[in-house]
Design a protein around this nucleic acid. Sequence first.
DNA 1: AGCCCACGGGG
DNA 2: GTGTACGTGGGCT
Length: 590
Amino acid sequence: MERKKFLLLDIDYITENDRAVIRLFGKLRGETNKSIIAKDKNFKPYIYVLPSNEIEECINELRELNIKKIERVRKKDVGIIKEFLKVTLKHPQDVPKLREKIWNLNSVESVREHDIPFYRRYLIDNGLFPMSEVEVQGQCMNPTFNFDNEPCIFQIDGEPQPLASGLPDLKVLSFDIEACNPKGMPQENKDPIIMISFSSNQGLRKVYSTKSSSFDFVEVLKDETELLKKFVETIKSENPDIITGYNTDVFDFPYIRDRAARLGVKLDLSVDGSELKFMRRGFANSAVVKGRIHVDLYPSMRRYLQLDRYTLERVYLEIFDEEKKDINGDEIHGCWVEEGDKLEELFEYSLDDAVAVTKIGEEMIPLIMALTRLVGQPLFDVTRMATGQQVEWYLIRKAYEYGDIVPNKPSNARISNRKRIEGGYVKDPVKGLHENVVYFDFRSLYPSIIISKNVSPDTLIDECDEEDCYIAPEVGFKFLKNPIGFVPSVIGNVLKERVKIKSRMKESTDPREQHVLDVQQEALKRLANSMYGVYGFIRFRWYCLECADSITAWGRDFIKKTMEKSEKNGFKPIYADTDGFYATYDSSHE
DNA sequence: AGCCCACGGGG
DNA sequence: GTGTACGTGGGCT
């Protein structure tokens, strides 16, 4: 029996002989650039069933559906302990097939945790965190692997163990393609790809094109087919852990897919030899390269920066306070046909785009990784999740730890019935130019209200003695003082953890360690910040209108009282919104 | 005011 | 893939 330690990059499952097999994609520790695919056949999909009254009858009805494994379990549901049935199924795809049938049984009140993807369930139940270290025990399936980028296939036998891990050394490869059309955006049915640029965090700088250049970073290829083959070859030989680009989910990868399909080029970019795939994620598709993490930086930038526009140039300027070389889209065709200096400029611009992406990646990926380790879902997924979703998956993991059954996602009908909540207190601004302006920041107001008033769906109560609960002003909703609610407890732990890390930062004398800790506390801050408005987010599993209304009511109350106090101390409030208020200071007051 | 639709990024 | 998911601003009615 062998043990392997590796950095967990990604996870999925495949079906072998009708059985679901989890695949952990990783990078072996100590062996640089060596990939591993660890397979686990021992994990089974399951759901929870809440019986309507007679539990034995429910078990019998489930048996009639040819379900073999049914266990009685006691779990909390919005704070109340209930007896559930844990129903184990054969294959993840049986869940969507059977849940409707089960829900319709007379003896069934509801079906729970039926929409947690299989690989996410695996991560949660085994306590594994992507971008952290994992140890597995088992046997190597291809012990003869010696080829440079051939992954080690490993059969897991026993439970994978999560390990504490330091900062991994990852290879990040960025790319950018150019194609052009005399007017407007290039069309994949007629406009060829004219160049592909690569840049890596290990110094690679390369442009491949079907036209030549005097720059030595440019290599000419005889046609577009060769260009696309070179694209595949470069990714395989560089063997990056992360592939980055800007808007690559929507533009570069789909364009490459379409051109490669026309020219008959196989896009086997993945670690397991499979081809480039696309996953539907609502309106936007995302490009999947198995075993490598494709990070389209565009959605992450939208989330992390507060800007008017999110072009690569604008984002670059914001992060580095430096203008990036830019060629207007409609000039590219001119540069390409005109050749000469204009073409040389285009080569420079194309490489510069790839390099800019690498630099932005180096800046942002540490934070993205810290957030990934918190949320506990694959980095690929986390970069494409809205912040509300990140909070939700964080809470789903916590619910598992706390022994709580996760609330179901609201149906579309329920979403349209849910009301968006009334905002915070807003005071119309006093017009004019003000001097000596100070800002009172309340951004931490909402989480502190949630914690101090124990605002949670499981502490919300209709009738209660006044001394045993907190009563929200204006709206009058009541929350039990004890026990501590699920969400307040989780937010409390996030804030406590952040305080701990900040104090470790102060104690540390190693600037490298300080930086790592700083990124960690920043991720915790962002997570806590995202928890502000979650009760009012209509698609949220823990949506609670009473909670949201109560929080803003306490918030308004608090802001008004603070403003009154500040006036007594010589400040004149001039404008207030939910997050704080601006005031001028009258020095004659002293 | 409320509904529908297009847009973002990319070349 | 235990899928099918955004938020907003403009034009129109």
